[in-house]
Every structure is written in structure tokens, then in C-alpha cells.
Computed example of a mutant assay.
Amino acid sequence: MKQAVTTNPFANPFSGKKSLNRLKDRLFTSVVWTLGIIIIAFIFGLLYLILQDGLPKLTWDFLFGLPSEIEEGGGIGPTLLNSFYILFISLVIAIPLGMAAGIYLAEFAPDNKLIGFVRICVEGLASVPSIIFGLFGIALFVEYFQIGLTILGGGISLAFLNLPVLTRVTEESIRAVPKELKSASFALGATHLQTISRALIPASLNGIITGICLVAGRAFGESAVIILTAGVTTSGEMWDFSLFSPGATLAVHLWYVQSEAIVGDAQEIAQKAAAVLVFVVLLINLLFRIPLWLNTRRTKR
């Protein structure tokens, strides 16, 4: 006599799949955590290798001293000043133009094939190697205007390098703002200009400042554009603010000392210059984070 097989009508048919999904979720979480820890450890290890040799040896004489072509003990004063000077010139030009172009593409540009082609061109320029902008700077400032290798040419060429990135960052940051915020601003009687300046830009400020931070760090450590447009030498004076002086920066000086210099302490100079370069880039990122923190605290109130 066969026994009757009874089934539980309340049994969950998806219980097996749930346990499998939990296993996959834990496995994926473990992989992500492992990769994240490895990457963070690699970054800290790289920073430690760069800073451990140069940072303890830094002195005020090195930071504000003049570079030396033959004798040992040269400093990086003029090149460090040129780095900040050219960075300032490039940001003064690139930030307003990049933000204006991004706002136009996000708020005013019609949705047609021409604007789509313009966006493709901007994205393409954002990924073009920096040496191409250096060659453009040579053609424009050295050959056409015939002003030679100058700080002015280096600063404007760096602005051209950063302009596409800032344009795309600004456009995407403004597009990411919820449409309800824009509609609410119009509903309160604000004009389009008031909506952009008082609603859209403050709401997208975190993304825009992050983009500025990225291009500032890139510009400070850029060497190819500077070599081709500003040269590999300085005027030999510490506080030279002439726009038409040679504009070798700290990154260019680091390359030159490491590959071309004949001074006996070239290796030590390169280590200290690399430590200063990394430290300043980290400092730039930290300084640009302050407005982000203030904006976040203000919006949470």
C-alpha cells in the first residue's frame, strides 16, 4: 500500500534563491572591501615612498633658494612661484569660461544635432593628451604672436587644457539638480537668471568645486604643456611676476633635474622636489574641500 505524499502549501518556493542571493551579496561585498583596502594601501604606500625621502630633508633655503645649474645645494624658489602663478592664471581664465559654457549647454542650448556635435567635441577635447595643447600653444604664442616661451603662454595653454573638463563637469552638475527645485524657483516668481544663480549653482556647487579641484591638481603637476609653452628655465629671480618671463614650474624642474641636470645632488633635489609637489597637490585638494564642507553644513540646516 503506497503512502500518500503530503506537501506543505505554505512552503516558500523562493527560499533557495534567497539563500543563494545572500551568498552572492556577501561574496560581492567581500570582493569590493578587499579591492578597496588594496587600493587604499597602494595609495598610502606610494605617498609614503615619495614623501619619506624628500620631506624630512626640506629646508627654507631649498624652498626659497634659486636653482643651480652647476653647484650643489640649489633650491626651487622661482619654479615653485611659477607653479602657483601659472595655476592662478589658468584658473582665472578657465573657471568663468568653463562654467559659462557648461551653464549654456545645460540651460540655454537647444536640443539639436549641432549642440550634440558640440558636446562630442568637448568630450573629445577633455581626453586629448596634454602635449597636443602644448603644440597648440607653440603655434599660437611662439610662432604666431612671437612672444617666445613665457608664463603668459603657459597659463593660457593650461586654461585651454582645463576648459573642456570644467565645461562638462559644470553641465553635468547642473543637469543633476532635481527638476522640482527649478520648477519651485519659477513658481516663486524668479527669473531664469535668478534661478540659475540662486538655485541651480548652489545646489550643484559640490560637483563644480570637485571638478575645479581635479583640474587644479592636474594643472599644478602638468609638465608637457609648460615645457612647450613656458620653457625649462626661469628668469633667475625669486619674485618675478612678469608675464613674459620664462615660466619653468616645479614639475618641469623635477623632470629636468632627474634627466638633464649635471649637479652632484640631483637625486636629492629630485626627491625633495617630488615631496613638495605631492604635498602641494594634497594641500590644494584639502583647501578646495573646505567650501564643500561649508556648503554641506549650510544646506543641512
Rank of each mutant, 00 (worst) to 15 (best):
Q3F: 05
F14L: 05
F14D: 06
S19K: 15
R26N: 15
W33H: 10
W33M: 09
L35H: 08
L35G: 01
G36F: 00
L46S: 15
Y48K: 09
Y48C: 04
L49Q: 15
I50D: 12
L58C: 09
L58Y: 09
T59A: 08
W60Y: 11
W60M: 12
I70D: 14
G74P: 02
G74A: 02
G75Q: 03
P78E: 00
N82Q: 03
S83C: 03
Y85P: 03
L87N: 10
L91I: 00
M99Q: 10
G102Y: 08
G102T: 10
Y104I: 13
D111Q: 14
N112K: 01
V118W: 11
G124R: 10
S130R: 12
I132S: 06
G137V: 03
G137A: 07
A139N: 13
V142P: 05
E143L: 02
S157L: 08
N162R: 06
P164D: 00
R168P: 01
R168I: 01
E171G: 07
E172P: 07
I174Q: 07
S183V: 06
S185E: 06
F186Q: 14
F186L: 09
A187R: 13
G189C: 02
H192Y: 04
H192L: 02
L193N: 12
Q194T: 01
S197R: 15
L200F: 13
I201G: 13
S204Y: 15
T210R: 05
V215N: 07
A219F: 12
I227N: 08
I227Y: 08
T229G: 03
T229W: 06
T233I: 06
S235R: 04
W239E: 11
D240F: 02
H253Y: 07
L254G: 05
W255C: 01
W255F: 08
Y256P: 06
E260W: 11
V263Y: 08
Q267R: 04
A275D: 02
V276M: 09
L277K: 01
I284D: 05
N285I: 00
R289I: 00
T296F: 02
K300F: 01
